[in-house]
């Protein structure tokens, strides 16, 4: 539980994808997203899938992990499939029952929609699977940097993410302890009915929130005492270095996207 909360979804490894600059990976994900949106035919989707499988395999993370990554979204995919099947009409009629029709085109569109979503979720998992939260955060910071022109502070965003990464596990631990303390005082979460469970989670919010605020207050002081001033110029211990492999990786996605467009 704890390791999972600390490292997010990161899967330890030493493949060439693990070693890539997070910015390259972020860029590649954007390109892949565009490609998925553009892919509307079976052929395009097949090429895209083949490409994705090759890239995923080269990360040397068990393939099943990627498939499992899309698991929480299965109901949504199923819904999309049913929706298209029922309401898109065209091609051969496979089944008719009053005004209710299932057509070949509807089924096909439904399949494509589910397929695209599955592809997108599974593939983009490679970003969080092969990048540590720290590196990801750094990548985000430099990716967001251009936004400072329009007055968005990239630094405050990434500081926020850093602090969340740091404290979410702690807050969960505290909440867990509270649940145990409640159980000791006769309100065992496991024994409760659904309504009471909801009520109990609400009562938990009070001490957890009070605790978080108290913590935040002290944290701000600790940061200030060590010289933190929001948006003041600062250096960074961690730096990102762009290598040839990163350019190559991005190029691969550009080529893939161009092929999709030409087709």
């Amino acid at each position: 539980m704890q390791t999972r909360m600390i490292m997010g979804r990161y899967v330890e490894g030493d493949s060439w994808i693990h070693r890539l600059d997070p910015r390259a990976k972020l860029g590649a994900m954007v390109l892949f997203l565009v490609a998925v949106i553009l892919a509307s035919r079976g052929l395009e989707l097949s090429i895209l899938t083949a490409f994705a499988v090759v890239v995923l395999l080269s990360s040397r993370i068990p393939f099943t992990r990627y498939i499992r990554a899309a698991k929480p979204l299965w109901p949504l995919m199923a819904f999309m499939f049913i929706f298209y099947t029922l309401f898109e009409h065209g091609g051969d009629i496979w089944l008719q029952w009053g005004s209710f029709r299932i057509t070949s085109e509807g089924v096909l569109l439904g399949l494509f929609a589910a397929w695209r979503m599955f592809l997108l979720i599974s593939f983009t998992s490679i970003l969080t699977f092969t990048t540590t939260p720290i590196a990801l955060n750094l990548g985000l910071e430099s990716a967001l940097k251009p936004l400072s022109i329009v007055g968005v502070s990239a630094q405050s965003w990434t500081m926020m993410i850093t602090i969340s990464l740091r404290f979410i596990p702690t807050i969960f631990q505290e909440a867990e302890k509270l649940l145990k303390a409640q159980a000791s005082r006769g309100a065992d979460y496991q024994d409760l009915k659904l309504m009471d469970k909801a009520k109990m989670v609400l009562t938990l919010m009070v001490p957890v929130t009070v605790g978080a605020f108290r913590r935040a207050e002290e944290l701000v002081m600790a940061m200030e005492a060590r010289g933190y001033v929001l948006d003041a110029p600062r250096t960074s211990l961690r730096t990102l270095t762009w290598r040839a492999a990163d350019t190559l990786f991005l190029l691969l996605f550009v080529i893939m996207l161009s092929v999709m467009i030409v087709l």
């Binding site: 600390i6 939260p133 720290i134 850093t162 602090i163 990464l165 740091r166 913590r215 002290e218 944290l219 600790a222 940061m223 060590r226 010289g227 933190y228 001033v229 003041a232 110029p233 600062r234 250096t235 960074s236 211990l237 961690r238």
Partner: peptide, 20 residues
């Protein structure tokens, strides 16, 4: 409440980073 970063190294660096 005074451990800001996610590793010891990054945390020690925090004050240095602030001082550029």
């Amino acid at each position: 409440n005074q451990f800001i970063a996610t590793t010891v190294r990054d945390d020690i660096a925090f004050g240095l980073e602030n001082r550029a």
